[in-house]
């Protein structure tokens, strides 16, 4: 998916600390009235109740908060909520289809035991979905390189690689 900048006007400031944000999350229009300092991560979790996206460091270093903005992976802790005004956001909650079926990568993660505590998993999945789209699953080494922005402290890396490899082979 191509990344496009919003042509919408700048978000409307209510007062010094409040801003209205109009965005689309997992295909549904959403309006947030949030503190101007609110990150995309916080808006998703606190304003929309989409707690699947995790906070692991708040410094863009662990990847647990990875979501898609206009189809590209971003760490949502380093993006202000106001920056997604007029843009499309996809979170882990948006990976299942209309019938509630798991995305092939989600199934592969379960089958290959590609997680343990599960805390980094939503971010791993969101990175992996983009990695497949970007055509970066050509080899295990390439998968490892392009998944290395997502830390897994339980150490499930080998199983994550296996899951991504399988999903890539399946034409996902």
């Amino acid at each position: 998916m191509k990344t496009t900048r919003s042509t919408a006007p700048a978000p409307t400031a209510q007062d010094e600390y409040t801003v209205d944000v109009f965005t689309v999350v997992n295909g549904a229009p959403v309006q947030w009235r949030v503190d101007t300092r609110t990150t995309l991560l916080e808006a998703l979790r606190d304003s929309s109740g989409l707690t699947g996206t995790k906070r692991g460091c708040d410094q863009g270093a662990c990847g647990a908060c990875t979501v898609h903005v206009d189809g590209a992976r971003v760490v949502s802790c380093l993006m202000l909520a106001a920056q997604v005004d007029g843009r499309q956001v996809t979170t882990v909650e948006g990976l299942i289809d209309e019938e509630g079926r798991l995305h092939p990568l989600q199934e592969a993660f379960v089958r290959h035991d590609a997680f343990q505590c599960g805390f980094c998993t939503p971010g791993q999945l969101m990175s992996a979905v983009c990695l497949l789209r970007e055509g970066r699953a050509g080899s295990d080494a390439e998968i490892r390189e392009y998944m290395s922005g997502n830390l897994c402290r339980c150490g499930a890396y080998d199983n994550i690689v296996a899951a991504v490899r399988e999903a890539a082979g399946g034409g996902a």
Partner: peptide, 8 residues
């Protein structure tokens, strides 16, 4: 608990 963990 896999399905819970992969769906957030």
């Amino acid at each position: 608990d896999g399905p819970h963990k992969v769906t957030g």
